[in-house]
Design a protein around this nucleic acid. Structure first.
Length: 869
DNA sequence: GCGGACTGCTTACCT
DNA sequence: ACAGGTAAGCAGTCCGCG
């Protein structure tokens, strides 16, 4: 494959492609599907499962010829196992073990143990089935003896042991599963080589492998979204999918092949409508629910991939259980349920809710574009299309209303996978490649699961023993620093005391991926921090200001893996994205790669301090943070010795008065030479307004763009009327070019705030304008220690019979009287406590007035005088 | 019995 | 179920006060 660019420009490859798209695809040669077949890549590996009846692992392959998922069953005789440190002779004495029904045989093996830095003779205990190792509530092999690698899911183990690359092209030849050749294009190879000049061979090898995975083009996959509606006799209650008590009255299916159907159940007492339903879809009525479901199951059978929004917990679960209670045979229902997931037999189910719920995805991949995780909110913010509004309960809708409502949900769902050139699917594939994880698992697990899988894969590839969690803790000891926040395990980052005032000409420098860089440069990992070597070389290699030391003899896997990913992002993909010659298709793919790497890198330090992480190692996290503090403090000290004025800093960034660009250059040089860390100019502000508060500033670029960080005026819960006033003020501030102009607009800003104050006093704002909106993060009854205001408001709503769940957004206003607050829906405008609101305005604008030397009290005091005259 | 000082809880944010 | 650090508001408690 030489021309990656052309592959990426390939349009949807479908058999039932619409006429319009067909024309487009013909004009758009070469065809990726054709190319892939010519290159013997007939399919893509999307995941691995285990078939309990056959007792075999199987690969799920997306076959391009048929656009179906094809299963390939293991032919290598791979079996579930765990590992013991006892020799076979000893284990043979263990009656419970050798007589266990799932026990198969022992094998003598050798493993490298990173904790002790030694080769170890160990015994592989091979079992007949995965559940015998672990998974049953009692009597598993891992409960009988102390075992290693015993709680890795079998399918995951299979991926690692067979070194399978999920999301990459494969083919089945003579019954064997073999990877299709995909080599890095020469041009990419040459570019990459340049960035890797000074690295160790081991590091280079890893980097090339990553690049091969990241550069392989991602084709389009045929898929369909589904959404169901269920009848409910009680309007406020959502039917329980485990009971599946009530009939499914509507199902929408939308395929990427332009298949669009809405299936409706005929019911009594639903008025016939004279006009036909106006939807760009086939509407099909069914007399019985059984007919409807049969038809539906046939429809989705065509699709290799089904996407839903919350299908794990609702749609698929309901469908399966409902079909069962309608006496469908098990084989007739193409849905399989797990404890907390649902999937399609011979298919892939992607639950977008699960993926969007993931905080890393929300924050780093989508930049907080959506705040709540509802289909309406996500659809509105990413597609500009929200759910269809309905004013009646589902069960009372007419056929037409019901069809339109249900269809819209399916439409948003499928479009979420299609927008921005199928960005979402590409992101999932990318994460599957980095983590060597089944694509369904990628969407369901968090970033710690991905990183765990990536590290496990590398362990197995190198025949390293994967340590037990208790082992790491026992050998590596605890943390030695004290956190500033009560209840935290160790000390974190430094935040520099800001210099209050309005500063013109500010450069912000930061370390590119500071923590991943530290992990790379300092060779951090559970095997290297506090390594077992007795000699001085290691023990003297202290983490600054700390008793921990770092190994000088061995390379940590974490350091190599995280380091190589970091370098690829910083030295390769980020510069490529800045290249004006990059084509649109490549740019969009590189954006995905860069964002995917960002997600993984941003979490790569935190996982070592998370006690549920499989390779939890507090000293690694603590050392990383400590080195981070050392680095930024050293840099600040150096800057001051160079005479550069430091205004503020946080973790990995420093704000400088940028009078002397030459000096900043010197600082960057110094950082590279003395600490091997890349310090770079991140932002240049026309001016920055700093109050005395940390994590709280306003920065204006020369083009007028404004960064607002931490200011309450921007926060989600702030009432609309204050937000609007706040942004009116920001608009004014964005125009300011100099100190002199600044003085001039002060009056205008005062007027803006004064206007707001007067409108409030005259009760000209609506309840919606005045509403605070705060997420209730726990179920209301679980607030036992205190009753915060939003919980009080929630309680008032519950008294009215409204159901409040955790995660709901509570909107309330401050009122005079006992409770102090009332939900918007229950309050009236004349009970508003305007005094409280004045205090609130004061506090919000003080964050900006403080550096500007404006006095709020004086401002409203003046107002009173004016009114007087 | 009351108000100010204090601590702790909660949410939303920053890196 | 990636981490720790900070701001802010409010709830609840303690303490002094002839």
């Amino acid at each position: 494959m030489q021309n990656l660019d052309e592959f990426l420009s390939e349009p949807v490859n479908n058999q039932k492609i619409s006429e319009k798209r067909k024309a487009k695809s013909e004009s758009n040669e070469p065809n990726l599907k054709k190319e892939i077949i010519e290159n013997n890549a007939k399919s893509f590996l999307l995941g691995v499962g285990y078939d309990g009846d056959k007792g075999l692992a199987y690969a799920k392959l997306y076959d391009f010829k048929s656009d179906k998922i094809v299963l390939w069953f293991d032919d290598t005789g791979h079996k579930p196992y765990c590992i013991s440190d006892q020799p076979i002779e000893v284990l043979e004495e263990n009656k419970d073990l050798v007589s266990h029904s799932g026990f198969d045989h022992f094998e003598e093996i050798e493993k490298y143990d990173p904790i002790t830095d030694s080769q170890k003779k160990m015994t592989k205990i091979v079992a007949r089935d995965p559940l015998s190792i672990g998974g049953r509530p009692i009597g598993c092999i891992r409960d009988i003896i102390k075992a290693w690698e015993a709680d890795i899911r079998y399918a995951e183990n299979y991926i690692h042991d067979r070194n399978l690359e999920i999301g990459m092209p494969y083919e089945v030849k003579d019954g064997k599963l073999i990877p299709s050749k995909f080599e890095l294009p020469d041009s990419i190879l040459a570019d990459l080589e340049k960035t890797l000049e000074d690295e160790l061979d081991e590091f280079k090898k890893l980097s090339y492998n990553w690049a091969r995975l990241l550069e392989c083009p991602v084709p389009e996959f045929m898929r369909a979204s589904i959404d169901i509606e269920v009848y409910s006799p009680i309007e406020t209650r959502i039917p329980d999918p485990n009971e599946a008590e009530y009939p499914i009255i509507c199902i929408s299916i939308i395929g990427t092949d332009d298949f669009r159907q809405v299936l409706l159940l005929k019911r009594e007492n639903i008025p016939e409508e004279s006009e036909s339903i106006s939807l760009d879809a086939d509407i099909i009525f069914f007399q019985t629910e059984k007919e409807l479901l049969s038809y539906f199951f046939k429809c989705i059978g065509k699709y290799p991939i089904i996407v839903t929004f919350n299908g794990d917990d609702f749609d698929l679960r309901y469908l399966r259980n409902r079909a069962q209670s309608l006496d469908f045979e098990k084989e007739q229902i193409p849905i399989e349920l797990g404890r907390d997931y649902a999937t399609i037999r011979k298919g892939i189910h992607l639950d977008l809710y699960r993926f969007f719920f993931n905080r890393s995805i929300q924050v780093y991949a989508f930049g907080q574009k959506y705040r709540e995780k509802s289909l309406n909110e996500i659809g509105s913010s990413l597609l500009n299309v929200g759910k269809k509004e309905i004013t009646k309960p589902i069960s009372e809708l007419t056929y037409s209303e019901l069809a339109i409502y249900c269809y819209r949900d399916a439409e948003i769902t499928i479009n979420l996978t299609k927008f921005d050139d199928s960005l979402l699917i590409k992101l999932m594939i990318l994460l599957a490649r980095i983590s060597y994880m089944d694509i369904e698992d990628v969407t369901r697990q968090g970033v710690s699961g991905w990183i765990r899988s990536m590290l496990f894969h590398e362990h197995k590839k190198r025949n390293y023993l994967i340590p037990r969690q208790d082992e790491i803790l026992e050998f590596k000891g605890r943390t030695v620093s004290e956190a500033i926040i009560k209840g935290k395990k160790y000390k974190g980052a430094i935040v520099v005391e800001p210099t209050p005032g309005v500063h013109f000409g500010v450069s912000v420098l930061d370390f590119a991926s500071l923590y991943p860089s530290v992990i790379k440069i300092w060779n951090l990992g559970y095997g290297t921090v506090n390594c077992p070597h007795e000699d001085e070389e290691c023990k003297n290699n202290k983490v600054p200001n700390m008793s921990h030391w770092v190994c000088k003899k061995r390379k940590a896997l974490e350091s190599l893996l995280i380091g190589s990913l970091r370098d690829l992002r910083v030295n390769f993909y980020k510069p490529k994205l800045k290249d004006p010659n990059l084509s649109d298709n490549m740019r969009s793919w590189y954006r995905v790669v860069s964002d995917g790497l960002k997600v993984v890198l941003n979490a790569s330090y935190g996982v070592f301090g998370a006690d549920r992480f499989a390779l939890y190692c507090p000293p690694v996290a603590e050392a990383t943070a400590a080195i981070g503090r050392y680095v930024i403090q050293n840099t600040i000290d150096k800057a001051q010795s160079l005479g550069i004025h430091v205004l503020y800093g946080d973790t990995d960034s420093i704000f400088f008065e940028s009078s002397d660009q030459m000096q900043l250059k010197n600082l960057i040089e110094w950082s590279k030479n003395s600490m091997k860390l890349e310090l770079e100019v991140d932002k240049e502000y026309k001016y920055v307004a700093l109050s005395s508060r940390k994590k709280n500033y306003l920065g204006v670029y020369s083009d007028g763009k404004v960064d607002i960080k931490g200011l309450t005026g921007k926060k989600r819960h702030t009432p609309k009327f204050i937000k609007n006033t706040f942004y009116e003020m920001i608009d004014k501030l964005s125009e300011v070019e100099s100190k002199e102009e600044f003085e001039k607009i002060k009056g205008e800003i005062k007027n803006i705030v004064k206007k707001c104050y007067l409108k409030l006093k005259n009760r000209e704002y609506s309840l919606e304008d005045l509403a605070f909106s705060i997420v209730i993060s726990k179920s209301p009854e679980r607030y036992t220690k205190t009753t915060p205001q939003h919980v009080k408001a929630a309680q008032l709503l519950m008294e009215k019979g409204i159901d409040i769940k955790r995660g709901d957004l509570i909107t309330f206003v401050k009122v005079v009287g006992e409770t102090g607050v009332k939900p918007v829906s229950l309050a009236s405008i004349n009970e508003i406590d305007s005094q409280k609101y004045v205090e609130y305005i004061d506090s919000i604008f003080d964050q900006v007035f403080d550096p500007m030397d404006i006095d709020f009290q004086e401002l409203i005091g003046a107002t009173k005088l004016e009114k007087f005259f």
